[in-house]
Design a protein around this nucleic acid. Sequence first.
DNA 1: CTACAACTGTAGCGGTTGCTACATTCGACT
DNA 2: AGTCGAATGTAGCAACCGCTACAGTTGTAG
Lengths: 177, 177
Amino acid sequence: MTATRLSRDVLLPRLAAHVLEHGLADASLRPLARAAGTSDRMLLYHFGSKEQLVADLLAYLAGQFSAALDRAFPAERAASREDCVAQVLAITGEGTFQPFMRVWWDIVSGCAAGNAAYLEAAGAIMDGLLQWVVDHLPEDDPDPQAGARMVLTYIEGAQMLAAVGRGDIPQAGLSAL
Amino acid sequence: MTATRLSRDVLLPRLAAHVLEHGLADASLRPLARAAGTSDRMLLYHFGSKEQLVADLLAYLAGQFSAALDRAFPAERAASREDCVAQVLAITGEGTFQPFMRVWWDIVSGCAAGNAAYLEAAGAIMDGLLQWVVDHLPEDDPDPQAGARMVLTYIEGAQMLAAVGRGDIPQAGLSAL
DNA sequence: CTACAACTGTAGCGGTTGCTACATTCGACT
DNA sequence: AGTCGAATGTAGCAACCGCTACAGTTGTAG
């Protein structure tokens, strides 16, 4: 049990690195294993099935994402809702976050297909991000609950448009917020 | 040539129907062919390759989407930006549009993976939607260009959050627009 | 009727998929 | 030293993937 847990803990970061580079949608056991320095046989041994492996991977990636977010943003609050949007977009638009965004859209695609594990992971990530926005809105925001939800929605729309090569649209819309 | 074009025109709606039901991400030639009443052999004969088939399918789906949008929305303008967002969300949240949203996230996922055909189709769809929003904003909007872009961004964010089971977030954020 | 091009079915290629049966090695405990 | 379970390698399964070679069968134009 202990050895198994240890092995999984060693494997997960390597698997995550491979997925961040090559995407989650068409990740298969043999390339995954090669990247992690094992065999498909052992991946199945440690995780039971590919489905479980992906579920564990999603949980791991969700943790990594919120950790990276906390690391990238200082504790201070934004000057305005608009500033809060701009801050998040500036950071997540940066190169460091690009690989995660790439797999994020694979996750959303899995959610739209009805995959329960994807839905759980994506929901958790969004809940975390919402909390982060709540914590970073200006102190004097007239309605932090609604404001944070509006900000989060706009951020996500901006990221989708950026993913399809229309990042100029949310940028130009920012002034109308 | 004529016969080929005809065949493709007969095939495309059937292929689109299958993709709208089962998703685009893991659509493969044999099931596609079965759904269209042909063989994988003939699909490749008519389209040349799976890549080209998907490209043609994307163009067809983009056309179907904007047609459905024009059909669902009357010509009159919205009362406000907020109302415009609410109108689009009400329609696209309806059951009829659900299958399209399902394949939409497959398209976005393909864009994030760098697929050029997906990027082109997605960009065209977004451009069409942006134009639609511009045309449906209130006459007296102070800045229709920026306003439409803001509205579109919010709509897309709302749809992503809905896809991951957090449709309540954009709903609650609407009042902060 | 012939000739030629468009069309289509059959069968299969080499590759990948998730997963498993079987045999073996390793390491800790008695 | 011996035992037992955890860990691992090898080999392979049946199903699927996109695609193609080959052999027809049509439909049509001269």
